[in-house]
Design a protein around this nucleic acid. Structure first.
Lengths: 188, 188
DNA sequence: GTCTATATCAGGATAGAC
DNA sequence: GTCTATCCTGATATAGAC
């Protein structure tokens, strides 16, 4: 079926982009993974720019849905924060893949304006969600030492993404855990 | 002179690598910038892998020297920490370039084992320096809320690198400032 | 040390048959 | 929707003259 091929292409492209960056995977790689010829990929995604836009759109939706899930299933702010930390931890795949946002941000110069705009929008959405978590954490006192919720949100996204990079450098998820340990310790 | 050409090549290569990533610059780019033919670059750096090793070596030395300078010129732990924050802030070049370590870490898959080992070593050195700063900060009380110095060091490097990424995404140094605001506020 | 010339390969993309 | 065939460009790298 056509849509299955499209989904398979997105799946492989996302893994490849997260493992090797936007410049690090090619239509030839995807063709081999999915089992069709590289020219056929252009039927589904005429250009690599359009493919990467589709990638960001799907990624944004997926993560937003997971954040909504976390919100729905946790009452305490600390549990919500730990839920996001765990989401990032899982995305590491034992240090083999970054999250798409970190990978694409590093590839900034190679990406279309449209994709870069989507990355900014994604970041804003995550920060907004984190901000509400810290605001709640200030109220329910489940997160210690909360100052300004918005600034805590900016700092937290930075720590998570920086921890991803550090873990990727050593291909070791334990490095991620070390980098977020101070943050995790604030959760009661 | 020969060595001037070599230095010029390293200078341009570093800027290019930080702006566009390891996969994002070529010998043709360097040739144009330095004013020689691309084949001539191979006289100085036979392969791109050797060029990137030289880049990391020089980068490690440069940053280590700057850290030593900061240590020498500041008594208080908070001033040392702020000195490093400012070093990273400057390296952003108004959001146009990442630091070499972040850029190369994201290019992990494309780099030689030798370069990746140098990146790990560089990270360890920075963490070690930060750890000593936080240990001092616990003693002189110039940094508030210090828990375990080593964990604070890991978290701080992550915040700095994550803040770099965030600022790069929007090409706006103000985004860096927002991401490190909580850290800076701990400095007395 | 730098040049010209070239080898080799891989990238994204298109045309047109089936 | 997928194929074969092809185009064009640009990448790293080498050989050998100057």
């Amino acid at each position: 079926m056509a849509s299955d091929t499209k989904t398979a292409l997105l799946d492989f492209a996302e893994q490849a982009a997260r493992a090797r960056g936007f410049d690090g995977f090619s239509y030839a790689d995807l063709a081999k993974s999915v089992g069709i010829r590289k020219a056929s990929i252009h039927y589904h995604f005429p250009t690599k720019a359009e493919l990467s836009e589709a990638l960001m759109d799907r990624y944004h939706e997926t993560i937003s849905a997971k954040c909504a899930e976390i919100t729905a299933s946790s009452e305490k702010a600390s549990d919500r924060l730990l839920g996001l930390v765990n989401l990032y931890r899982t995305a590491l795949n034992e240090g083999k893949t970054l999250c798409l946002c970190v990978s694409f941000t590093a590839s900034h110069q190679s990406l279309s304006d449209a994709v870069n705009a989507k990355i900014s929008a994604f970041r804003s959405a995550i920060v907004k969600w984190l901000q509400s978590v810290f605001a709640l954490g200030k109220d329910d006192a489940s997160i210690s030492g909360v100052s300004e919720p918005q600034l805590e949100a900016f700092a937290t996204l930075a720590v998570l993404e920086g921890a991803h990079l550090a873990a990727r450098a050593d291909e070791d998820v334990a490095v991620f855990d070390q980098a977020v340990a101070v943050l995790v310790a604030r959760c009661k």
